[in-house]
Design a binder for these strands. Sequence first.
DNA 1: ACCTGAACACCGTTCAAGT
DNA 2: ACCTGAACACCGTTCAAGT
Lengths: 224, 224
Amino acid sequence: MASQAPVPRTPLSRDRVLRAAVEIADADGLQAATMRRIGESLGAEAMSLYYHVANKNDLLDGLVDVLMDEITEAVDGDRPADDWKQALRQRILSARQVMLRHRWAPGLLEGRTSMRPAVVLYHDQLVGLMRSGGFSYDLAHHALHALGSRALGFSQELFDPSAGAGEVSDRMLAELASQVPNLAGMLAEIAHDDPESTIGWCDDQAEFEFALDLILDGLERLNS
Amino acid sequence: MASQAPVPRTPLSRDRVLRAAVEIADADGLQAATMRRIGESLGAEAMSLYYHVANKNDLLDGLVDVLMDEITEAVDGDRPADDWKQALRQRILSARQVMLRHRWAPGLLEGRTSMRPAVVLYHDQLVGLMRSGGFSYDLAHHALHALGSRALGFSQELFDPSAGAGEVSDRMLAELASQVPNLAGMLAEIAHDDPESTIGWCDDQAEFEFALDLILDGLERLNS
DNA sequence: ACCTGAACACCGTTCAAGT
DNA sequence: ACCTGAACACCGTTCAAGT
């Protein structure tokens, strides 16, 4: 009998490795995307990955690249803008949509110092939009710093958005009031104004846009 | 002969463990502060730490606490402020001084969702300052989001400040110019204006203050 | 060219055992 | 009460060996 041909497994590739990693990170977080687990999900051994990826660091760089590809694609769909402000706003909010699809992305970008070309390019284009809006290089430079990670559509959330979730009982408010009266008052008012907001305190998207517009408005004033 | 009394090693304690961890993180980064290494630096075994600290997560929470203690201490030294804006500004810049002493702190706070009481209290006080400046709860809430991690004295740096360090040769500029013309132009101008800036592109402190003031100015306008 | 088995040096953590 | 040795399940990574 001829030897049974083994199921012709699609060969690995950098691309397949990265896509597998994204899938795992999307589902279970970045820390779940270990070499062993990625290998497993591809029906291969962890060590096989090293043929397509230099090491873990290179793999993470690769994740940044696929992320930036997705952002570029999203941004290409933006409709032409009337002015620099609208252009920046649209672009950043489009980038944010990608970030929201990949909850691991902010955490990944935070830790990275790798200066991936795609990230540099993205910021170059932001500066381009500002320049065509009349920004000096100096102001554009300041603007990049002021935006910080917001330029890519996310911002540091110091409190877990889901931690404050659920109902806010009067009892909890009373306890809070003695320790942190100002936050308690704030929370009480928000709970009063929007008793249905069981998703937690805040509408993240609205808050993101508020902060973004605050910065863009400030820049506009400095640019005139 | 009486049994040789062993060197009476100071017993461990949560406090000693945390201080050892801070020392290691200051010197070699947070990732160097492993249980084994902390134990070693105290002349004990890694497993001994578990008597004073529930687990690694609890240890990291502890690090946040010592950080917040330091910030509270720094903030207490602030001179009384004339208005809410100056008060916020001083407080945030004082917090920043602590962050600069502990380069691992931003990275630690980023990842944490733990809602440490000290962090909540810090933000409560910020809101208190805003309230006494006439802020509505709603505006104060927006303000916290707009400040984000900046409220604690740091912000997301997407590029490694030290990565751009060193001289910027004309050759590098030429290479950059074709790929990222806008950034290249920006860099060229900065290098021209301040040829001595070998620390890298930017004065981080100045940029931080620029962004902070941009936000505070924006809030002031909304508050009047 | 592509993949793997065995092995190494590291993690955090448990637990029974020592003083 | 406080500390430790041995052990476990996990990391990333190397390298000689297989096809």
